[in-house]
């Protein structure tokens, strides 16, 4: 059992999830990061050292969610901070989109919130303290051609956030979303140069964000100082969307 509060970060192998796991360790949490493979989980465990652990989790599989959350409860204690970060893209224009491209994105990016949050709620309710932080995207608000599936899922994430915040406020559990703009990760690294330039022209700060800049927003929402914020979406996007 961990003396520290336990935080669970899904999709913590790379990019934003990895930065969030590192931030929460620095903030004094015991962090369990998840990956879809044994190898990924082992690498997370090595990276977090004594302040965390890696676990295999497939957020689209009910059984996997149940068994992983149970093992975290048994080994380290109930997670009181949950960061729903795991996500995928399967971009395509609507006229070409395949059923599995639609369904995979909705299942991994949206249905997973239902499964993982529900599995963690008993512990937070008992503790009368909890933080659920969902990683959305600026695309959930602005939309983006070729990402109807992703935008639908991320818009759904933000609605889920607002509803659950109202449901759980009386138990001192806050629920928020953080909506990154374009962040320098493997996901954006893959974009063609011309597209990157066009993208930067629409960002007042004139650069892509760093994963650490998302992680520090998450860290603040998880901290005691962020305790009066609930049901909101915090946009971290260099000004590309200004509400």
């Amino acid at each position: 059992m961990s003396e520290k509060k336990v935080a669970l970060v899904t999709g913590a192998s790379r990019g934003i999830g990895r930065a969030i796991a590192e931030q929460l360790v620095a903030d004094g949490f015991f962090v369990v990061g998840t990956a879809t493979s044994e190898k990924g989980a082992a690498a997370i465990g090595d990276a977090l050292g004594a302040n965390g652990a890696g676990k295999v989790l497939n957020v689209t599989d009910k059984e996997s969610v149940a068994s992983t959350v149970k093992s975290i409860n048994d080994e380290f204690g109930a997670p009181l901070v949950l960061v729903n970060n795991a996500g995928i893209t399967r971009d395509n224009i609507m006229l070409r989109m395949k059923d599995d491209e639609w369904e995979d994105v909705i299942n991994t990016n949206l249905n997973s919130l239902y499964r993982v949050s529900k599995a963690c709620l008993k512990g937070m309710t008992k503790a009368r303290w909890g933080r659920i932080i969902n990683i959305s995207s600026v695309v959930g608000t602005m939309g983006n051609a070729g990402q109807a599936n992703y935008a639908a899922a991320k818009g759904g994430v933000e609605g889920f956030t607002r509803a659950l915040a109202r449901e759980l406020g009386s138990r001192n559990i806050t629920v928020n979303s953080v909506a990154p703009g374009f962040i320098q990760t493997d996901m954006t690294e893959a974009l063609p140069e011309a597209q990157k330039e066009a993208l930067l022209a629409g960002i007042p700060l004139g650069r892509l964000g760093q994963p650490g800049e998302i992680a520090s927003a998450v860290g603040w929402l998880a901290s005691d100082g962020g305790g009066y914020v609930t049901g909101t979406t915090l946009h971290v996007n260099g000004g590309m969307f200004t509400g």
């Binding site: 008993k122 008992k126 759980l168 009386s170 138990r171």
Partner: peptide, 11 residues
């Protein structure tokens, strides 16, 4: 009790 209270009671 509200609906959340009843769930907690069962817990």
């Amino acid at each position: 009790a509200d609906s959340l209270d009843t769930v907690e009671l069962v817990m």
